[in-house]
Design a protein around this nucleic acid. Structure first.
Length: 254
DNA sequence: AACGGAACCTGAAAGC
DNA sequence: TGCTTTCAGGTTCCGT
């Protein structure tokens, strides 16, 4: 269930595994013979420009992962695609099948990609611009952060974590945040992304919802445990059908 | 135009 | 034990 940090770590792994390499074989015939010019990321999308000018777009959905295996290894459980380069082979596995792979022969991105707002790592985040954008909605700040056209890459975990770091109540209306709040929020987003990049970096990513996976987060998935900052009990609520975790004491209310 | 809710799909855990 | 319900860090579509 990947968000910006997990997709960024996947990007770095894929760049090492297949960046600059020629595709010797693939589950998608059209890819054979192409060279992977680079592995890029924007929001939760991976973008792989190929030597012919075609571009491969990959979205991990909720459960998608790229794994490195040996060329001689058989299909992995839930394998949906494979790309072989030299002796190595990368596999896309996705039990829940929400992930997507799109080969754009003309390089034109899918609509969802084209509509993405600024990516914090790729484009940076401007507090004034974000503040102006937040003025245009009556939704809660938590729901608004999940809107990929406002900001690319923040998902349910990063939203909760960033708001906790910024001490902002997730139920607060987005248009009620002043510039000072938005500055704290921007700092919170960067801090949370950095923290997650540091704690999850591995050749094989493990998502927190998987059985037995560690939970490195401050509030996500921590209902009824003490807030790491003020020791009040973390609460779980539902917003727009998704779980939100927050501290009712140190995150300033609506 | 913007918003909330259901739908898409599968597996694991919790509840009965 | 086995059946049912709930939940999951994704987007998309549909109706209001």
């Amino acid at each position: 269930m990947p968000e910006l940090p997990e997709v960024e770590l996947t990007r770095r792994n894929l760049a090492r595994w297949i960046g600059g390499k020629k595709i010797a074989d693939a589950s998608l015939d059209r890819l054979v013979g192409e060279r992977v010019r680079s592995v890029e990321r924007r929001g939760k999308w991976l973008r792989l420009p190929l030597s012919s000018g075609a571009v491969l777009f990959s979205h991990l959905g909720m459960t998608g992962k790229w794994l490195e295996r040996s060329r001689s290894d058989g299909p992995q459980r839930w394998e949906r695609a494979r790309i072989d380069v030299g002796r190595a082979s990368v596999r896309f596995v996705d039990p829940r099948r929400f992930g997507r792979m799109i080969l754009a022969r003309d390089g034109k991105p899918p609509a969802a990609f084209a509509a993405l707002g600024p990516d914090p790592l790729v484009d940076g985040l401007d507090a004034r611009a974000l503040h102006a954008r937040l003025q245009r909605t009556k939704r809660s700040i938590k729901e608004t952060l999940l809107d990929q056209t406002v900001l690319a890459g923040v998902g349910n975990i990063q939203a909760a974590e960033a708001l906790w770091r910024a001490r902002i109540d997730p139920r607060r209306r987005a248009d009620r945040l002043d510039l000072a709040h938005v500055r704290k929020l921007v700092a919170g987003i960067f801090a949370s992304i950095r923290f997650t990049l540091g704690s999850e970096d591995a050749p094989e990513l493990v998502y927190v919802e998987e059985p037995g996976a560690p939970n490195p987060f401050k509030v996500y998935g921590k209902a009824e445990t003490p807030c790491p900052r003020c020791r009040a009990n973390i609460r779980r609520i539902v917003q727009a059908g998704r779980s939100t975790f927050f501290c009712p004491r140190c995150q300033i209310g609506p």
